[in-house]
């Protein structure tokens, strides 16, 4: 079998594995929810880079070099838009934390911010949680590896997108009480995440249109964060 044949089989198996994968979730048991009055909101892992992403970039059809070019294109576009966002006073992590805080308060929880150190290069749940000091009943561990604008492909519009991973652990014994993912403008079926349809008011046919209307685009992204925070609050009620 030649090299390209080998690549074909590896790609086929990878597709099969991808089809089986999905997020692992656990709903919140109302009987356990009753004991949670105060939540310790751990410092979320959210990048300040506003991502600009094409789920399937045309360059990906052109082998390894095309994939590298596609990746480079997306990195450049993300950097350009992040600069435009900064110019409008938009700092992603701060805005997101504010939306989440508002959502949790709305769900009836008292919220206390708890600072934790996280790796700046990876987005994942913590492996260890702070020891209980009695000030909170549970810790909320959040990370988002995608906040920004995505288009399905080269001929489809960019829309605000948020993918939030959430875990609630009991402070006393670190038992996972709730775990889920919430996707605003999911690609495909959302791989098991709770999916929220994006507003059709914030669509940008091409990247230049996104840049030219940065203020409006950021308004759409803030809406996406707000709605995601509200959905989290709904899940934790």
């Amino acid at each position: 079998m030649n090299k390209s044949g080998q690549i074909f089989w590896v790609a086929l198996i990878a597709l099969g594995l991808q089809a089986c994968s999905g997020i692992q979730y656990r709903a919140l048991d109302p009987s356990e929810r009753r004991d949670i009055k105060t939540i310790g909101l751990l410092t979320p892992a959210v990048s300040d880079t506003v991502a600009v992403k094409m789920s399937v970039h045309p360059g990906q059809s052109l082998g390894m070099i095309g994939t590298l070019l596609a990746r480079s294109d997306m990195i450049d576009k993300s950097a350009d838009f992040t600069q435009a966002a900064s110019g409008n006073g938009f700092v992603c992590s701060k805005r997101f934390e504010k939306s989440l805080y508002a959502g949790l308060t709305k769900a009836g929880y008292a919220v206390k911010k708890v600072h934790v150190s996280r790796s700046t290069s990876s987005y994942e749940f913590l492996t260890r949680y702070p020891e209980a000091d009695g000030s909170v009943d549970a810790y909320l561990d959040l990370y988002s590896d995608l906040v920004g604008f995505t288009a399905a492909g080269g001929t489809t519009p960019y829309r605000p997108t948020v993918l939030l991973h959430v875990r609630l652990v009991r402070a006393s014994d670190h038992k996972v009480l709730y775990q889920d993912a919430i996707a605003y403008n999911a690609f495909g079926d959302g791989a098991g995440a709770v999916t929220i349809a994006p507003s059709r008011s914030y669509e940008f046919a091409v990247f230049s249109s996104l840049m030219a209307n940065a203020r409006q685009a950021l308004e759409g992204l803030q809406l996406a964060m707000k709605v995601t925070g509200e959905e989290l609050a709904r899940q934790l009620r």
Binding site: S4, F8, S55, P58, Q60, A152, G153, T156, G188
Partner: peptide
């Protein structure tokens, strides 16, 4: 949203044309 993949054989080199769709 989703995508489709079309395998294309161009000479000796096969490649996959991928397109994101809505």
């Amino acid at each position: 949203s989703g995508y489709f993949v079309v395998p294309i054989i161009a000479g000796l080199i096969p490649f996959f044309y991928m397109q994101g769709t809505e």
